[in-house]
């Protein structure tokens, strides 16, 4: 099955439940056979985004369609497209910068928990960026949002992950940070950066 692994990964990180992810994957491939989706694939081929991106876009769409149906209101998707999505990319330095050269593998568990705590829209961006290695443009195409939103969302996702790591005792211990000392937490330890 073409790109099943990538589609399942996205479905899993959107739903966070294996059985829901399986349903979503099935829905994705069924939708992919529908004429409107096929027509869109023809368009996507024009800009070389390919079958994987096409399937992932369908998966993402199907997930939010399902959320809308479940909510019977637009609360969830309104949250998804809230005003913060359109604000300029934050200019502050990232907490990550203080962690250069550290052994990230030591904090895999903490990092996974931090990512799991994120909203699905942040997880989706992180996945497409971190795992699939996509460019901002490709992510924007898949998630059907402006590229500025992708950049903003990616920055926020990274910042939230770093803040969560800073508050996680396991990560503090692994990174040699003193618990409860905010000045030494990854979230605040980064040097101010001239804008």
């Amino acid at each position: 099955m073409e790109h099943l692994e990538a589609v399942y990964r996205l479905a899993y990180h959107l739903t966070r439940r294996a059985d829901d992810a399986e349903d979503l994957v099935q829905e994705t491939y069924l939708r992919a056979l529908k004429p409107s989706a096929v027509a869109r694939f023809d368009e996507s081929r024009e800009d070389n985004s390919g079958m994987r991106s096409w399937l992932m876009a369908i998966c993402h769409n199907a997930f939010y369609t399902s959320l809308r149906k479940k909510a019977r209101a637009h609360a969830t998707t309104d949250t998804f497209h809230d005003a913060s999505d359109t604000e300029p990319t934050p200019g502050e330095g990232c907490a990550t910068w203080s962690l250069a050269g550290l052994d990230w593998e030591q904090v895999d568990g903490s990092l996974k928990r931090a990512i799991d705590e994120l909203k699905p829209e942040f997880r989706a961006v992180l996945l497409l960026w971190g795992v699939e290695g996509l460019k901002y443009r490709e992510i924007a195409t898949i998630l059907e949002v402006p590229i500025g939103t992708i950049m903003s969302r990616l920055h926020r996702a990274r910042a939230l992950v770093c803040e969560a790591l800073a508050a996680d005792p396991e990560a503090q211990a692994a990174f040699g940070l003193e618990p409860g000392t905010s000045d030494q937490s990854p979230a605040t330890k980064a040097s101010p950066t001239p804008e």
């Binding site: 910068w97 250069a100 990230w104 895999d108 990512i115």
Partner: peptide, 20 residues
């Protein structure tokens, strides 16, 4: 080093999230 740190984070995120 700031660029390096961002890349390390990306790599770590990729490793953790691909474990599915």
């Amino acid at each position: 080093p700031r660029v390096a740190a961002e890349r390390e984070l990306r790599s770590a995120v990729g490793r953790v999230m691909s474990d599915v």
